[in-house]
Design a protein around this nucleic acid. Sequence first.
RNA 1: GUGAGCGUAGCUCAGUUGGUUAGAGCACCAGGUUGUGGCCCUGGGGGUCGUGGGUUCAAAUCCCAUCGCUCACCCCA
Length: 416
Amino acid sequence: MIKAVTGTKDILPNEISKWNYLESVVRSVFKSFNYSEIRTPIFEETSLFARGIGEETDIVGKEMYTFLDKGQTSITLKPEMTASVVRAYIEHSMASKQPLHKLYYISPMFRQERPQAGRLRQFHQFGAEALGSDSPMLDAEMIHMVYEILKRLGLKDLMVKINSLGIPEVRENYKKVLREFLLPKKNLLSEDSRKRFDTNILRIFDSKVESDQDLLKNAPMLINHLDEKSKNDFEIVKKILTTVKIPFEVDSKLVRGLDYYTKTTFEIVSGKVGSQNALCGGGRYDLLAEQLEGKHTPGVGFAAGIERILLACENEKSFNIPEEKLDFYIVTIGENLSEKVYEAASILRQRNFSVEFDYQNRSTKAQMREANKLNSRFVIFFGGDEYLSGMVSIKNMQSSEQRQIPISELQTINID
RNA sequence: GUGAGCGUAGCUCAGUUGGUUAGAGCACCAGGUUGUGGCCCUGGGGGUCGUGGGUUCAAAUCCCAUCGCUCACCCCA
């Protein structure tokens, strides 16, 4: 049997309604903040991600779906959206049309990792990018939007974590300080962290090894080494969040795995989804556009994992979707009236009612059971004595009331 | 890439030390008397016990391999 590829999942009809519901919430919140949708291709030239996300990152180093197309161009299935959005922004000279662009997306992403709870190889994200302004109001707005979406989805067990990484010079300086601090203890670090010491020392803060965390106890914190501008902007972000009553925690250890971040970074974690607990992550990336050979364009954005959010919603039973209802089920009695039934259904469907009937010539009882299973509000009976005089019976399935009407009345019938 | 656990009907699972035609619940289909649902009752279809090999008179049950799934590490949404 051919099965879906490891790490991919079919979304079957019985679960599609919650996806649609989530997407409708996402779109309406983005609309209220005046964000416009952007759709970019599923794949890009590999170098976009290599340069945008950073050669040293795990995403680029080992998780991308990369292949050569027939023209021998290296192609990669998008592992995240920011690089693509910035590419489109530059390619279409969007900066020249207006100074600030507020964009959102809902799209599948691809990363070749070992699947586990809340982690797939093809997964889906929604997210936003605001390009063209370095206002910290936009940083706060990003957090505000996801938080609002998660809240509307009924999630409660959430924690907003924010941090500031400062500008690159500050960060480089701080790295030196941290390196000096850790050097004497280097041999006591875990193997992974010793590697990070050389490649990306900030990441040591992410270590889940307890002894590593012990060694970091009195480490100098980046947050105390920020430049004035970064510090002020961070204060503004915090003030806005407080004003709109979004609880948050400053997590000076929050270092995100994409190279392009500057200043604000944030994450919202759920206590209800297992070990991959980040529902969303994001931050500011003021230097990315230049890295991609565009003009200097400050930007800030976030991405949220739809599967993880739905997992949290399920575990918190955070929302209910009303059952699908059918308006009419047409049952035939006795004789085969398929064209007549088809025609009647067609008339009702033209008026936008949802209508179903039996295709398999089954017994009346079987048709009734089907009508019941489909949650049909009304059943229309075709056939029998009354049909000879141009009448059909119509039954309200909830009250069980039944009356006869002329067939022609189906053209004007109302059910409310 | 590393580690652990699990693979019996569409789904959730029973099947205690190897022994007769492998079971249940749910789901599905048909029926419960002339043309009507939800509850209930009766019957039915559906499994080469993940796959391949081995041990044995005999294997879903023991051994080996292989594939798949799940969870965790790593990393991230």
